[in-house]
Computed example of a mutant assay.
Amino acid sequence: MSFFLELLAAIAIFLLGLGMSFFFSGTETAFYRVSTVRLMIAANAGDRISRRLLAFAHRPGRFVATTLVGNNVANYLVSIGTGLATVLVVRSEGLAEVVGTWMVTPLVFVCGELLPKNICYITPSWLLRRGSALFRVFYVLFLPITLPLAMISHLLERIAGAATGTADLVFGRNRLTQVFSQGRQAGLLSDAQSRFLTGLLTASGDAVERTMTPADRIFGLHGDATRDEVLEHARRLALTEVVLGSKSKPGEWTHYVRVAELAVSDRPLATLKRPLPRFEAGQAKLEVLLALRTAGDSVGGITRDGVMIGVANERGLVESVFRAGRPLAVASTAA
Rank of each mutant, 00 (worst) to 15 (best):
Y32R: 02
R33F: 00
V34F: 00
S35A: 15
T36M: 05
R38K: 12
R38G: 03
L39G: 04
L39S: 03
N44E: 11
A45T: 00
A45S: 05
R48C: 00
R52H: 01
A55V: 05
F56M: 14
F56L: 12
H58L: 15
V64R: 07
V64K: 10
A65K: 08
T67I: 10
N72W: 06
V73R: 00
V73H: 02
V73M: 05
N75I: 14
Y76N: 09
Y76V: 10
V78M: 13
L84G: 00
A85W: 05
V87T: 09
V89H: 08
R91G: 15
G94L: 12
E97T: 11
V98E: 09
V98G: 13
V99Q: 04
G100F: 07
T101Y: 04
M103S: 05
M103C: 09
V104I: 12
V104T: 11
T105K: 02
T105L: 15
L107F: 11
L107H: 06
V110S: 04
G112I: 08
G112S: 06
E113T: 08
K117D: 02
K117Y: 01
N118M: 10
N118Y: 13
I119L: 14
C120N: 11
C120G: 08
P124E: 10
S125Y: 04
L127A: 05
L128G: 01
R130W: 12
A133W: 09
V137Y: 05
F138K: 00
Y139Q: 13
Y139T: 12
L141A: 11
L143N: 04
P144V: 08
T146N: 02
L147K: 12
L147E: 02
P148I: 09
M151D: 08
I152V: 13
S153W: 03
S153Y: 03
H154A: 15
H154F: 06
H154I: 13
L155S: 13
